[in-house]
Computed example of a mutant assay.
Amino acid sequence: MSPSFPLQGKTAAVTGAASGIGFASAKAMADAGARVVLIDRDAAALEKACAAIGHHALPLVLDLLDPAQCNSLLERALALVGQLDIFHANAGLYLGGDLLGTTPQAIDRMLNLNVNVVMKNVHNVLPHMVGRRTGDILVTSSLAAHYPTPWEPVYASSKWAIDCFVQTVRRQMFKHGIRVGSVSPGPVVTGLLADWPAEKLAEARASGSLIEAAEVAQVLLFMLTRPRGMTIRDVVLMPTNFDL
């Protein structure tokens, strides 16, 4: 393994990979030498993302909210790369504002993608990794998983649930040689911030309280490149100027 390409020979899959943290994660892993399957439902955006990364990037168009497509993730990823060493469950939705201002349909959609799909994707890929007795599972969580953020009760609840899922599955999987960890960033410059309350977004921008997706990706790469006997189980990162 070359120090310049610490993931050389590895394969990875990233959900929600056409933009934001998912794209940054896929690019960081590809730049480190891995072959990466980028998974997203937006075919046009996925094509652009893969072109931007280069020949180490392979597109896989999936709508994870469609149960049949969701269940095909591992099979279709293996058809592209043969084996899976790293899985980054990143796809998610944001829903902020007052609880009374949202709808049951919006709540269902967000919880389905942020919680159910993550659990199903991890359930899908784990038997493959257990059989090989090695693998890394990374999950994009949020600073909201660690604080009852008052302007996003549904979103924060989804991330609290996923944080619990990561920590419990990690305890089940380490005996199989599989590491499970999450990254919990504060506000990141991605499309999800479009749903932030306008006054909160303006305040964050004015105070320099946002971080870049590429900065999150560097943390993910750090987690992946530790010796196999070390698990970074959760990293909380935030802009220095941002504090709840």
Score class of each variant (00 low, 15 high):
106 A>L: 14
107 I>Q: 13
108 D>R: 10
108 D>L: 13
108 D>E: 15
109 R>H: 11
109 R>N: 09
110 M>I: 15
110 M>R: 00
111 L>F: 14
112 N>Q: 13
112 N>K: 04
112 N>P: 00
113 L>R: 02
113 L>C: 05
113 L>H: 05
114 N>G: 03
115 V>W: 06
116 N>S: 13
116 N>D: 13
116 N>M: 14
116 N>R: 15
116 N>F: 13
118 V>Q: 01
118 V>P: 01
118 V>D: 01
119 M>R: 11
119 M>Q: 09
119 M>D: 00
119 M>L: 12
119 M>H: 04
121 N>S: 12
121 N>G: 08
121 N>R: 06
122 V>G: 01
122 V>W: 06
122 V>Y: 04
122 V>K: 02
123 H>F: 07
123 H>V: 06
123 H>Q: 14
123 H>S: 10
124 N>K: 04
124 N>G: 01
124 N>A: 01
125 V>N: 04
125 V>P: 03
125 V>C: 07
125 V>G: 03
126 L>C: 12
126 L>W: 02
126 L>T: 15
126 L>S: 06
127 P>M: 05
127 P>L: 06
127 P>W: 03
128 H>G: 06
128 H>W: 08
128 H>Y: 07
128 H>N: 08
129 M>H: 05
129 M>Q: 06
129 M>I: 09
130 V>W: 00
130 V>M: 12
130 V>D: 05
132 R>V: 09
133 R>Q: 15
133 R>G: 13
134 T>L: 01
134 T>I: 01
135 G>S: 10
135 G>Y: 06
135 G>I: 12
136 D>H: 14
136 D>Q: 12
136 D>K: 09
137 I>C: 02
137 I>M: 03
137 I>E: 01
139 V>L: 07
140 T>D: 08
140 T>Y: 07
140 T>E: 03
140 T>A: 05
141 S>C: 15
141 S>E: 10
142 S>L: 11
142 S>W: 10
142 S>I: 12
143 L>S: 11
145 A>G: 09
145 A>I: 06
145 A>R: 05
146 H>W: 14
147 Y>A: 00
149 T>E: 07
149 T>V: 14
151 W>H: 04
153 P>S: 06
153 P>Q: 03
153 P>A: 04
154 V>M: 07
154 V>T: 10
154 V>R: 08
155 Y>A: 01
155 Y>P: 02
156 A>N: 09
